[in-house]
Design a protein around this nucleic acid. Structure first.
Lengths: 234, 234
DNA sequence: CTGCCACTATGGTCAGACCACATGGCCCGG
DNA sequence: CCGGGCCATGTGGTCTGACCATAGTGGCAG
């Protein structure tokens, strides 16, 4: 198999980073060598190194910052949610992925999460944080974008109870992908106050179902909750 | 709204492309202007344009090719699966996303797909293509990587029956994220021939359940199928 | 001891050049 | 008139070297 399809200069860096990540040689929070150092190390130009870094940044694997000190440079983070969210958002924009399917997928994941949360081992503090989010959402003076942001955090917090990082990450991504879409729809919506009141009620109801370990009940409630909201706004 | 959070030079291009995508000004299959043209158009350097193009490429929104002619240049494609798959693979490598959760998420999506496929309107030709994949997998001389590749296609074809682009895309991504992982496990596995024989049997069984519109049956079969396979190999 | 400021290392951007590649048309020979 | 080979052209890919903006750091002066 003498195939060498990846002669691209920056692929070498990409491959090396991935291998180092897999072997544990570099891990979350570590700083990568500077771009100039990597360029010399691999015998390629700094521009090509930047290509690789850019790719990693888009995928949410690293974060770059200028300046000096411990917070500067290229640091290994792990933020799959926003990375996947951005990608999905663009594919929604290009009409490759219908919004309807996004919502449907979200219902699938969220019902699954709550159904499984009933049998999972989560810390009571997790539920408490979700409740604090609901308390914050009770503020009548809250502008709608702030409300929807808290709403997103609440749903992510709930889905995290199932203990599956992939599912909650993807849920977060889906939400992020259509966030602007939803905010725009909400902004032009009359009767927003009435909708918010109903959302608050439904949220409390869902939280109580989770609290009493009623997985099926919580799943049904959240399905109705999401579908009601999207029917009302979109 | 005097906010200018995006001072980055390449963000302007990114934003413009996204807007053009959303407005339908550019659509799938279109060619973007050349990098030099874009640089002049936005008053930035070609390097910054390349940063934006690279980001789009990583997200699976465009594809770049050298040379001239209709197949060269930067073309709008829409390949979310491989893009999300690559990103997920790296996050698995960095141990941010456990393989166990990937498999669990895959079970969730695939059971959902088959359960919904029973009520969905799919073309009989879709089932026929899935069957052809199974026929190809009957070849006893098939090397294991080719078998698992066909297996992946079969599962994607099945999940496509539910008619949800987001779910089948994510399923494909999950599969891609742990493909090398699975292939490696399979390669070092004794009794591979026996496993393949059982996989073939289960595949036919699943296909038949879908064919007779038995959604619950198909869902249960595919759950057992996936969990059996991963218990056997990983 | 304190506050200011130059120094330094980082990523971000720019400019201009050359390379590898694929096409399409031109030219020349048949 | 036709066919094949060759080169002009335009594409992305890479390289070089420079300068800018930023943010810690450490020394220096008060």
């Amino acid at each position: 198999m003498p195939e060498r399809p990846s002669e691209r200069a920056h692929d070498a860096v990409l491959q090396h980073i991935e291998d180092s990540l897999r072997s544990g040689e570099i891990k979350l929070g570590d700083r990568l060598p500077g771009e100039r150092a990597l360029a010399e190390q691999f015998g390629i130009s700094r521009a090509s190194v930047r290509d690789a870094i850019r790719a990693l940044e888009v995928m949410g694997v690293v974060r770059s910052a200028t300046g000096s000190g411990p917070n500067a440079g290229t640091i290994v983070v792990s933020d799959p949610s926003s990375a996947l969210g951005s990608a999905l958002r663009l594919h929604v924009a290009s009409q490759r992925l219908p919004v309807k399917d996004i919502v449907e997928a979200r219902v699938m994941m969220e019902t699954w999460s709550l159904a499984h949360a009933a049998d999972a081992n989560w810390e009571p503090v997790q539920l408490e944080e979700a409740r604090k989010l609901l308390d914050a959402m009770d503020d009548p003076a809250l502008p709608s974008p702030a409300f929807t942001a808290l709403d997103a955090q609440f749903h992510v917090a709930l889905s995290a109870l199932a203990g599956n990082a992939v599912v909650s990450t993807m849920m977060d991504s889906l939400r992020e992908a259509i966030r602007e879409y939803v905010d725009e729809a909400v902004r032009t919506r009359a009767q927003w106050d009435d909708i918010v009141a109903e959302l608050r009620r439904q949220h409390r109801e869902i939280l109580e179902a989770v609290e009493r370990r009623d997985g099926d009940g919580a799943a049904h409630l959240v399905r109705d909750h999401i579908e009601w909201f999207y029917a009302k706004t979109l």
